[in-house]
Structure formats: C-alpha cells, structure tokens
Amino acid sequence: MAQQARAVVTRAAIISGAAAVFQQRGYGSTSLADVCAEAGVTKGALYFHFDSKEALARAIIESQHELSSAIGRDLVASNMRGLNAMIVMTLEIADQLHNNPVVSAGVRLTIEAANFASPVDAPYLDWMKAAEVFLRRGQVEGDITETVEVCSAAHFLISGFTGVQVVSDVLTRREDIQQRLVEMWHMLLPGLVPTDRLADLLTLPERIRASRQAALGQH
C-alpha cells in the first residue's frame, strides 16, 4: 500500500511539473528532461508512468478535460436556465484556465495536438454538446430565439470562446479573460435572444460575473 501511495504521489508530481513546463514552452519545445527537472523525479520514475512525451501530454489533456467537463455536467444536471448556464460555463472554465496550471496546459496542448499521432477533439466536442443542451433549454424557456440553429450556434460559441481565451492568454496571461468574455456575450446575444427580451438579457453576462465575484469574495 505504501508503494502504491508513493506511485500516486509521483504521478501527480509528474503531471504538475509537466503542466508547468508545457504551459510555458509548448509541446514542441519541452523535453522529458525538462519535465523531470521541474517535477523533481528521475527519468526512470517518469518512464514508469509514461512511455513517451505524447503519453504524458495526453494524460494532462485528460486531467484538464475531466476538470472542465465536470462544470458542464453539473450545469446540465442543474435547474439553471439554459442561457444563464451557458454563460456560467464559459466564465467558470475561464477561471480554471486562469488559475489551474493543469487546465491551462491541457488547453494549450489540445491546440497543439497537430503534433500528436492522432487528433484530440473530445474537449471541443463535449463543450459543444453541453452548449447544445443549454441552447435547446433556452429555446424552451424563451430566452433563445426559436429560429437559432442549435448545432451551428454551439459550434460557433465554443470556437469564439477558444479564440477569446487564446488572445487573452497572449496579451495578458488571461488577466482580462472575464471582461473579454462579457464583451463576447454582448456581441453574440443580439443574434441569439428574442428582440423583446434583448434589453434585459444584454446585461445578463455582467450580472452573472458580478454575482460570481461577490460570492467568491465571501469565502
């Protein structure tokens, strides 16, 4: 049992160290020696858990995907209105990107996955599926126009979110990502919500962001 516990700790240290290096240098410029140095483990220990750099990168992506997917699953299972849930999902994943090195590295590696032997598309597809659920829920609730084509809108929303977070990372290390997402929603909502509800719903992203910040500030 003690040996198994040490293995779990070592694997976690490798994931954490690799995430820090991959996030800083990218997949192509990172060596396993860099990872060992950052994680404080030997190459033998690293190879015991991961037989290649790609296997290690995929493990980080899987960890990131599980952390981010949990947000979508919880919101899908909740009673939150569809439009609200969709906005909350983007803001909460943005928090992860800004504050969790594994999530940040996993997203960067997903973008750089052209270097891998096979593509990595599950994170994007799962986010799109969650967005489809929220859009359909919003249509039933009257917050999303009935003429909105759900699959196309979900694809565009996740593509837009991806672009916003990448540019925010490049320009400010994601310090401004929440504000940029509020701006993104202000641009998108006129094409999604009924005209007679636009005035009220246009302020929804900022209200949700302010409410979340206030809640976080209480803890």
Rank of each mutant, 00 (worst) to 15 (best):
A117N: 11
F156S: 05
K129F: 00
A33S: 12
M89S: 01
I14V: 15
L157I: 14
F161N: 06
G82C: 11
A70R: 15
I60K: 01
C151R: 15
A12Q: 14
L216D: 11
M128E: 08
A33M: 01
D143L: 13
Q96K: 08
G72L: 00
H98I: 05
S63D: 15
I144R: 09
R209F: 04
A215D: 15
F116S: 02
R6V: 13
A70H: 10
M184R: 06
H186S: 10
P101M: 07
L198H: 12
R137W: 11
S152P: 09
E149V: 15
T203V: 10
T162M: 05
D51V: 01
G191Y: 11
G217V: 04
S118I: 08
I71E: 03
A117R: 14
T162P: 00
Q64G: 02
A37L: 14
V41D: 03
A37M: 07
C151A: 12
H65N: 11
T162D: 09
A130I: 00
I177T: 14
I144P: 05
V150A: 13
L91D: 05
V76P: 00
I111L: 09
L97S: 14
L56P: 04
G163I: 09
W185Y: 14
L201Y: 09
R136L: 06
A33C: 02
Q3T: 15
G40M: 06
Q213Y: 08
R58D: 02
V21T: 07
A45G: 09
V21P: 02
D176R: 13
V167S: 06
R174Y: 07
V133A: 15
Q96C: 10
G26H: 08
Q3C: 02
K129R: 15
A85L: 06
V170G: 13
L46K: 08
V164N: 06
A117Q: 15
E183M: 10
A70M: 09
A154W: 00
L109E: 00
L171V: 10
E206Y: 10
E183Q: 10
I208W: 07
M187V: 11
I15W: 02
T147I: 14
T10C: 07
G17A: 03
I93C: 01
C36Q: 09
E112F: 04
E141D: 10
M128Y: 03
G44H: 03
G142I: 03
H186Q: 10
Q179N: 08
H49A: 01
Q4A: 10
D51S: 06
G82S: 13
K43V: 04
G106V: 03
K53F: 05
V150P: 08
F22S: 03
S52R: 06
T162L: 04
D95C: 14
F48Y: 14
L188K: 00
S211L: 11
T162H: 04
H98N: 07
V21A: 07
A55H: 00
V88T: 13
S159Q: 14
T42S: 10
R136W: 02
I61P: 04
V21Y: 01
M1E: 08
Y27C: 02
L204I: 01
V120G: 00
